[in-house]
Each structure stands twice: as C-alpha cells, then as structure tokens.
Amino acid sequence: MRGLREKTYVVAGGATGIGAAAAARLAEEGALVTVGDINIAGAEATVEQIARAGGRAIAVEFDLADDKSVQAMVDRTIAEFGGVHGLFNVGADLSPANIGRDKTVLETEFDVWQRTLDVNLLGYVRTVRAVLPHLLDRGGGSIVNTSSGTSVGGDPSRVAYGVSKAGVNQLTRHIAINYGRQGIRANGVMPGLVMGETVKNQNDVGLQEMFLTAGRTTRLGVPDDLASVVSFLLSDEAEWINGQVWFIGGGAHLRN
C-alpha cells in the first residue's frame, strides 16, 4: 500500500488479536511499529513475530488508563524511530472482572462504568492527545479507532461497553471535523465477531451461531480481516476517506 513504508505507527493494544495482526501487517508493508500493550509479554511476542518476518518493531508496556504511561509510549516511539505518522487504537478492558459484570443499566455497578469509560473511551482520548500534536507538526497523519457494532446496533447487555464505543465514534468524527483541513484523517472500524484469542477463550457458541445466522457470509471473522482494513485506512490509499466508521463483520449489520 502507498505511504506506509518507513513511516512509524503506534498500535495501542497490539499484544493479541486484531492489534497484533494489524501490527504485523503494517510491518509487512514496510512500516516501523510500536506495539503498545498492558500485556507486555504479548507485545514482545508480537514484536518477535514481526522480527522473524524481517520487519522492525518495538514493544512498550503501557496502560490506557494512565496518562503518564501513554505519553511515555509516544515519547519512546519518537526516540526510537524519529517521529510518528499514525495511530491505531484497539485496546479495551475485556477482562471477566469488568466486562463480565457489564449488564443492563439497572444491574451494572458504577465501578464497571468508570473502568470501561476510563479505558475504552478516555484511553483513546489520551493516546490521541499524545500523538495528534506530532501529526499536526509534521503536516498530517492518520488515526484509526476501534469501535463496535454495538455502538450503532444496540445490545441487551454490556451497556457500558456499548456507550463507550458510541463515544469512540463521536471522538473519531470530532477529530476529522476539527483537524481534517490540517492533514489529519480519523476513521474507525467496528468489528463483528472476530475469532481472536479473547473470543476463542470465551467460547460463546451461542454468540458465534448468532453472528453466523445474521451474517451474509459463510464464516466468522479473523484478525487479519481487520488488519487489512486498518492498514488501508492508515495508508495513502485512503487519503480521501475521513470521519468514517466502517462495520467490518461479514454483513451482519447492513447500514450506510
């Protein structure tokens, strides 16, 4: 893809799943990649995979809920690679202790709301605030945020998660509206059911059957399905796409 080679991208949440696949795809396209994650062992494994394939990447431990660690990740990226050209936000708190207690508005405790919004939404605000000034200084760059189909389609459960992702959609549009004329592109992806490590470990057969029934395809998603779209949106091939949030889920949601 045009415009990725020798450019530097931060993948905020690159230890496993979609983030790991996107980091690997960016490196395959010749980009320099920072793989950030609270799971440093997973981030290092992603970097090792990239190195074996001949790419260049670094692993940085950081926490979306911690301002200083977010800034330190961006500072490390610039020190290592000399700059930053784009950001892929993909991290979220999907731990059983958090999302496992995220139910209806009457059932979900406020500590779950606070943790979900602090990581899934404000965490993206933190990474954008750390990266965006550098993109503006160099005259442009690209940001891709990870949302969810629940942000537009609703969900009988996981109310805090859905609200956090609806906020991500609005954050994405806000960035495009305010900084598009300064060379900044901000877009989002809404994955359907993607069979990464977390989803496989959950082994929710009923959810898998529901997506297969709703989808206009013969299979569930895999991380590479999103990695290719994210790499495209970060690349110069997508230079006329801004402020969009795409559903990537085998046609389970049909929307414009």
Results as ranks from 00 to 15, higher is better:
residue 2 R to A: 13
residue 4 L to N: 00
residue 5 R to E: 14
residue 6 E to K: 13
residue 10 V to F: 15
residue 11 V to G: 00
residue 12 A to C: 04
residue 13 G to Q: 01
residue 13 G to K: 05
residue 16 T to R: 14
residue 26 L to T: 04
residue 27 A to D: 01
residue 28 E to T: 11
residue 29 E to C: 10
residue 30 G to F: 05
residue 32 L to F: 12
residue 33 V to W: 07
residue 34 T to C: 14
residue 34 T to K: 06
residue 35 V to K: 05
residue 36 G to C: 10
residue 47 V to T: 07
residue 48 E to L: 09
residue 54 G to M: 10
residue 54 G to T: 08
residue 57 A to V: 06
residue 60 V to K: 09
residue 64 L to V: 12
residue 66 D to A: 10
residue 67 D to V: 11
residue 68 K to W: 02
residue 75 D to T: 14
residue 76 R to N: 03
residue 80 E to I: 06
residue 89 N to F: 00
residue 91 G to A: 15
residue 92 A to H: 04
residue 93 D to R: 06
residue 94 L to I: 14
residue 96 P to D: 09
residue 96 P to Q: 10
residue 99 I to F: 07
residue 101 R to P: 04
residue 103 K to A: 11
residue 104 T to V: 08
residue 107 E to Y: 05
residue 110 F to Q: 12
residue 111 D to T: 07
residue 112 V to S: 01
residue 112 V to T: 05
residue 116 T to N: 03
residue 116 T to W: 11
residue 117 L to V: 11
residue 118 D to E: 13
residue 128 V to A: 13
residue 129 R to L: 08
residue 130 A to H: 04
residue 132 L to C: 07
residue 133 P to E: 10
residue 138 R to W: 00
residue 142 S to G: 09
residue 145 N to P: 04
residue 148 S to W: 06
residue 148 S to C: 08
residue 149 G to Q: 12
residue 154 G to Y: 03
residue 157 S to G: 04
residue 163 V to L: 10
residue 164 S to C: 03
residue 164 S to G: 08
residue 165 K to P: 00
residue 165 K to A: 01
residue 165 K to N: 03
residue 165 K to T: 07
residue 168 V to I: 15
residue 171 L to D: 01
residue 172 T to E: 01
residue 179 Y to S: 03
residue 181 R to N: 14
residue 182 Q to A: 11
residue 191 P to G: 08
residue 195 M to E: 02
residue 199 V to F: 00
residue 199 V to S: 09
residue 199 V to Y: 00
residue 202 Q to R: 14
residue 203 N to T: 00
residue 206 G to L: 12
residue 207 L to P: 03
residue 208 Q to D: 07
residue 208 Q to G: 15
residue 209 E to M: 12
residue 210 M to Q: 13
residue 212 L to A: 07
residue 213 T to G: 04
residue 216 R to V: 07
residue 216 R to K: 14
residue 216 R to M: 10
residue 221 G to S: 05
residue 224 D to E: 15
residue 228 S to H: 11
residue 228 S to E: 14
residue 229 V to L: 14
residue 238 A to E: 03
residue 243 G to E: 09
residue 243 G to K: 09
residue 249 G to T: 12
residue 255 R to T: 13
residue 256 N to C: 08
residue 256 N to H: 11
